[in-house]
Nucleic acid binder design. Structure first.
Lengths: 233, 233
DNA sequence: CGTGTAGTTGAGATGCGTCAATAGTTGTGG
DNA sequence: CCACAACTATTGACGCATCTCAACTACACG
């Protein structure tokens, strides 16, 4: 829908984080059964590489990251892995319709996440149309992200993919001209549909071309932001 | 969200199609300005290859196909085109958040579509939570489709891509063992991130492998549905 | 200091793209 | 019904970008 939601989604979820869910999710028929609600907004901790949920398991909650980085991915029968998305602090993941999750989610670094139960969401949205609007907006945001990812994967060179990835990471989590890459090369490769070797070679080439400088394997300095942007678009 | 909507989305939209929008979209503050509503549910005709809306133009409506086939795509600066999705009869397209469309939409065949104006949707959803639920469900469906497309484009062989595409088309519009392909080879290529030559070669190879038989360029008979499914997954 | 993991680099193989020619299809007009 | 043009699809030959396999390097951690 054309207009941005009247109340910023992040604002509403910030409230989710700060206050007990009852404050946000008002009384509703769901509350009477005495279950479900108490668990909304539950804080969970995960170690690096720990699984948060598995592909095909019950979709009872969605999650917001308080700190850390999460990847959602699918494993194919031949063992190949494809990463659907990376989620940074403040992002929401596992936001799917259907009774089962359609990807698995894994902590890339140590993570603190908040789990919000789906149970009762329909009732809450009925009671508060602004909340319903936030949910719609969140779904639309995920849609845009997935479309951009599909665009990134279709018929682009390795250099274009890697440049676009770096530009995206810079936009999302950039500290000035530095980009921190919390994920391993293999994660980047599985996200971009490349091999780890091609990712590594492409990064080296970008460095030789004076577009970036590799401070360390996980830390990139952008020396030519304009060119990086141009290469990735 | 785990459960399917209590009222099937299609049902609600069937009502959209059959009845004047006032019957579905009840009185609301928006109506008082005397505009917008009268145009909701407007029926439009498009010739083959005609543009329905352009990338970047005002996002005032979303659309449902009554008959025909539509593609949404993006054009890159170097002239390459990427197709985001194909929409068949009954599908909804142009369902995006934001003030501008982020793709262009073109009729592949002669088309009849219904345009629904966004204007006033927020108010309507506030008034009718079931409608809000349908909108959310539609967004979630688009999200799933885009995720599947990204999965299809990442590190799969040409044979896997084409097989998956055929299996998808069979599931969506199949008449028994026959698949009608309303789009040109170039469209399929731009959807799968391949060239037209590779698509053509791959189809020929599938025919030599006795997975399909090409009745004509636009009509495929599936001779080994199980194998086709397996190749594409 | 040794061991294990992550990342880089090199050499060769290959799948797909590119360019070009051919074949098939559709539509128009005589 | 045929002739012709224009377009779409198929097929072939060749080149190149990326994959594969392998060796090497850098870094973290006990």
């Amino acid at each position: 829908m054309p207009a941005s939601p009247s109340i910023a989604f992040d604002h509403a979820y910030a409230a989710f984080d700060a206050a007990p869910p009852q404050k946000i999710w008002p009384a509703s028929p769901e509350r009477r059964d005495g279950a479900g609600f108490g668990q909304a907004g539950q804080i969970l901790h995960f170690a690096a590489d720990e699984e948060i949920y598995a592909d095909g398991c019950e979709n009872s909650s969605f999650y917001k990251i308080k700190s850390g980085v999460v990847r959602t991915c699918k494993f194919r029968s031949d063992g190949r892995r494809q990463i659907d998305a990376f989620y940074l602090s403040g992002d929401i993941f596992g936001f799917e319709e259907g009774s089962q999750h359609r990807h698995s989610a894994e902590a890339i670094s140590e993570c603190v996440v908040i789990a919000y139960r789906w149970r009762g969401v329909d009732a809450l949205c009925s009671a508060d149309s602004r909340l319903a609007r936030q949910f719609l907006s969140q779904a639309m945001q995920g849609l845009r992200r997935a479309q951009d990812h599909a665009l990134l994967l279709g018929r682009r060179s390795a250099a274009e993919k890697v440049a676009a990835f770096l530009a995206d990471m810079a936009a999302r989590g950039g500290h000035g001209e530095f980009i921190d890459l919390p994920m391993a090369r293999q994660d980047i490769a599985d996200y971009l549909g490349l091999t780890i070797e091609t990712v590594s070679r492409t990064l080296s080439q970008l460095e030789r071309d004076d577009v970036i400088a590799l401070q360390s394997a996980r830390r990139v300095r952008v020396t030519d932001r304009v060119l990086l942007q141009r290469m990735g678009s």
